[in-house]
Design a protein around this nucleic acid. Structure first.
Lengths: 140, 140
DNA sequence: GGCTCTATGTATAATTA
DNA sequence: TTAATTATACATAGAGC
């Protein structure tokens, strides 16, 4: 069993090529979805299998259409200098919001831990005189 | 060293997200190229990184344009209503971030309250039988 | 930030049912 | 031919520079 290195060339055997194509298409869509979800990147893909009339799209037909419209508009957007300035401004705003979000989430995690301690504390009905530093031992 | 499983969710840390994005983008382009070359499949992709004006394309701008036009002209596909321009997309992104921030801040307040309860609890050594749902009443 | 390295998770070619 | 299985190539998170 077990695989060889991939030879970077068209797979000669048509049925084997189809099998590989199906597997790789599936893999590509998964990777696209991960890029989109983990990294907040907009991905739009159209894939034509030579044996099919209708293409596969990622993430779906409508979004691909929207992205393509944006793509077409690009040269128009690049015209103006003000546009760039404004866009930079907007990007700064996004960045700032993300930083805030990250900070608040971090605080959140700390509080989450303290709440867990509270639950443990309550459940076990332990003495309130317990040294808070002892709680550290309970952290999973 | 060595890696953990990928958590299927947005990577919180912006700079870490960027690193992952770059690696995964590279990987995705390679997979796209392999699908095309090994399996004779037509692939056209547009990728918008939120911090860049210009999208990445695979295999290149012209071919993407042609493939997308072919896709657009398919008679069976109905026209989309929700067409979004690049700018509207960016604004949506800001809105989403603001909503998230607000949500996390709200959660934060709840946890803040619980923490305060914990402190009171500890100080006064009150009964551990108090119902946690009572805390809800305290939320602003 | 970007680059290299490498351990480990993941994709998939080969094989079997 | 499609569906599972498994061994191995490949992608990439984490670490160090």
């Amino acid at each position: 069993m077990s695989r060889n290195k991939v030879n970077y060339a068209l797979i000669d055997d048509a049925s084997q090529r189809k099998v590989s194509s199906n597997k790789r298409l599936k893999g590509l869509l998964k990777k696209s979805d991960e890029l989109k979800t983990l990294c907040d990147v907009e991905v739009a893909t159209v894939i034509y299998d030579p044996y099919k009339n209708e293409p596969y799209t990622f993430p779906n037909n409508d979004i691909v259409r929207n992205t393509f419209i944006k793509f077409k508009e690009l040269p128009t957007l690049e015209r103006s200098k003000n546009m760039v300035t404004r866009e930079e401004f907007t990007m700064q705003r996004i960045k700032m919001l993300e930083e805030q979000l990250q900070k608040v989430r971090k605080e959140n995690r700390v509080k989450e831990m303290t709440n867990e301690m509270y639950e443990v504390f309550k459940r076990k009905n332990v003495s309130a005189d317990m040294n808070p530093s002892d709680l550290n031992d309970l952290v999973v």
